[in-house]
Design a protein around this nucleic acid. Structure first.
Lengths: 204, 204
DNA sequence: AAATTCTGACAACGATCGTTGTCAAAAGCG
DNA sequence: CGCTTTTGACAACGATCGTTGTCAGAATTT
């Protein structure tokens, strides 16, 4: 009988927590590296280096390179959707559309590189990523619809139109960013609000 | 003195024409391979094989792999813009927006895989490609504006809004394709027309 | 017919990268 | 203190791919 270890502690921290911390560090590093060098130029080694960890811990938390991309994407999108939902509930009913869009473009302005990566480079990378980003787009569209039409009869607009408006809002952001944020913030929001007006039920 | 060749003919075809034919074959093959396997999975060798040529002729016509992508993209976009412009001039002034959109979605339905590649996978591949696709987006936006507002005072809509509507039209296509063309063609066009209505000058 | 060019198949090089494996030192536990 | 686990640095493997180079045979011209 050799002596067995009974606790998980290392430097006072249990195993599970250490793993979670490393995982979070890798995701944080991935977002940073993707933003700096672009997703395609980001390697597993470079992300590990940026996280101050080694490949060993990469494969402890992620099955492969793609899994990290998906996890990073979900982390970013969840944070963004959360902030936007907060903006919606924090605004009077008649000013909700501008409120969400303000919140959205403010976040993108805050971190333009990360925005570019997760709005553009993500697309078409792999079927798994496409699934996740498709779901995110859908959630974004529903949020916009709710902001414009109220959260009651939730999807008050046809799905295709919602997809169109959502894509439009994103493309406004992309052109804004591509132009180095030349246009004033309020003008960006204004055009996006106009676009989102299409979501109001047609006056048949 | 050794004997020198004075003509360029080979099998009755001059050199320049043979090279152009090979180049065209490579572009045609590239579009097909991109569509089948996706751009990222497409290798130089696979494109050459599909074209019935070898790497030797690849580097005769293109400096590198990226150059082929750009050339293919431009070929596809030029053809699409041409067809759409024809649709515009062939329609009565008040029905021009539906006419362009009809033409656009019809083309995408005709070749869904190629559409996916050049609408999605292209994005963020390289700065050079981004430049080209940015220009194509701009041209598409101007075409839509002209179809809605008439070709007189050309850009009757703000650039950001135009970018948004353009992106929206594309995203409608993407969702339509992702759903396997489930929605009827006319419904797709109808939603896109609604979206494009935003381009009409605001009734201030 | 002889010389030259064109063509196509394919090997080889070099670089990159994801993934796995090794190993020794540090840290914790009894 | 002995023993185990954890950690981190890094080598190595294997696969892929872009790009260049080789070479023999077919086509063409004089």
């Amino acid at each position: 009988m050799t002596r067995e270890r009974t606790s998980n502690l290392y430097q006072g921290v249990p195993l599970e927590q250490r793993r979670a911390a490393r995982r979070a560090a890798l995701i944080r590093a991935a977002v940073a590296v993707y933003g700096e060098r672009g997703y395609r130029a980001a390697t597993v080694k470079s992300v590990c280096a940026a996280a101050g960890l080694t490949e060993r811990y990469f494969y402890e938390s992620f099955a492969n390179s793609e899994a990290l991309l998906v996890a990073s994407y979900e982390a970013v999108i969840d944070a963004m959707l959360g902030e936007m939902r907060a903006a919606v509930v924090g605004a009077p009913a008649e000013a909700r559309a501008p409120a969400v869009l303000r919140s959205y473009y403010a976040m993108l302005r805050r971190e333009p590189e990360a925005a570019r990566v997760f709005l553009v480079e993500i697309a078409g990378v792999s079927p798994a990523v496409d699934r996740v980003s498709g779901a995110a787009l859908k959630a974004f569209g529903l949020l916009l619809d709710a902001a414009v039409n109220g959260a009651d009869a939730s999807p008050a607009s046809p799905a295709l139109l919602r997809a169109g408006v959502t894509g439009g809002v994103i493309h406004i952001a992309l052109r804004w960013i591509a132009g180095g944020h030349a246009e004033p913030f309020d003008a960006v929001v204004e055009q996006a609000v106009r676009l989102c007006g299409t979501l109001k039920p047609a006056a048949t």
